[in-house]
Design a protein around this nucleic acid. Structure first.
Lengths: 209, 209
DNA sequence: GTCTATAAGGAGATAGAC
DNA sequence: GTCTATCTCCTTATAGAC
């Protein structure tokens, strides 16, 4: 039995096309953003007509919601797959690294730093909100564990670290470095991780021993 | 002689209205972003009609360009005014604090993390590019000085720190904290500065002595 | 289910009266 | 210079043929 289970060939084709639509949506979202993305863009990228697109997704909001849900599911899958022997800080670093690499390859962060308008739209999407809360719960626990273990600064509210962590996944510095510096993608990732975890300041020399 | 110099009363009124238009533009940009901002929004906020708006600014791009130029000039003015006895790190901290406070009061960062579309539009605006380069040159010098003085991590390319510094001025974590945490604006600012300069990691204990 | 053709409405920009 | 009214284009969404 294949990955589609007991679906008929027709349903399999339908699912495949749906997946292709979501791929195209993610790509267009990444390059133009929500407001400038048109349904014509998506239909054109997939190679179908606009009415066919509307047979799969009932509106632009619905389409974008599904694409973003898939991104969050990807983050949840990645998180579940990380070496369980890593500590919370190590896991957060691995997930951030993954998110940065996805972006450098033209993808989207799992939690786009979208405008108030888009945020509002997504908050009305119950399915999306549910997934976001699931991911958020896991990340919140990791942050708090890292603080308790002394890996993260425990004098700061965990909110501050958690929201800043989200922000680092969509840090615009990534695009600027990719565009204006001569660095490889690997170097960009390493530097972004460094800045996120250690900040701008020079490292204080560690205690001897 | 007043701040308008030798202008006639009519010209003074014209300049005042222009300033009011730019204020409204900045406010609308801050709340809706470029793509969703309409010329009707701006005209309505100022209390004039759309054709009058077009007498002052020949296009939406022009209007937004002028508003952003004024923001950059504000940053340059603030920078010139900072206590000159502060070191480069202190100056950068002061400017970032100022930018964060402006945003918390509903304003815009001086370098908005805009979409590729908006960035492209601004890069075609020679006047804007000139101002950005002026500010960028000053910030670049400050970053490099801070690195030479051992205030910032000298093992990182200055590009990385500079672009990350820009990113912190428009960090979306600010809005999330303002919205979902119980903190005062002062607390938000202090925490954001802390995270930017020190990162997530727990502070390493300093060498004794 | 897929397409061609089109409705409905929004938004940038302007004509022309005052 | 300011306004009312309008043009034009673009975008979401759908009707209706095959």
């Amino acid at each position: 039995m294949g990955i589609f289970g007991k679906l008929s060939f027709k349903d399999q084709a339908f699912k495949l096309r749906e997946s292709a639509i979501l791929d195209a949506t993610t790509a267009v979202l990444g390059s133009k953003g929500y407001d400038l993305m048109t349904m014509d863009d998506v239909a054109g990228a997939v190679g179908i007509s606009k009415p066919s697109l509307y047979k799969h997704f009932k509106s632009k909001e619905d389409l974008v919601g599904e694409a973003l849900i898939r991104l969050i599911d990807g983050a949840l899958d990645y998180l579940a797959q990380i070496d369980p022997t890593l500590g919370p800080k190590g896991k957060l670093a691995a997930l951030l690294e993954w998110a940065l690499r996805v972006r450098l390859e033209g993808g989207l962060p799992f939690l786009p730093s979208t405008s108030a308008h888009v945020r509002e739209m997504l908050m009305r999407n119950l399915k999306y909100v549910t997934r976001v809360l699931k991911l958020n719960g896991q990340l919140e626990k990791l942050v708090q564990s890292a603080q308790k273990l002394g890996e993260f600064d425990a004098s700061m509210p965990s909110d501050v670290i958690l929201f800043s962590y989200y922000a680092r996944t969509c840090d615009p510095a990534v695009e600027y470095l990719q565009r204006f510096s001569k660095m490889s993608n690997d170097q960009v990732v390493q530097h972004m991780l460094r800045v996120a975890f250690d900040g701008f300041n020079a490292p204080t020399p560690a205690l001897p021993g």
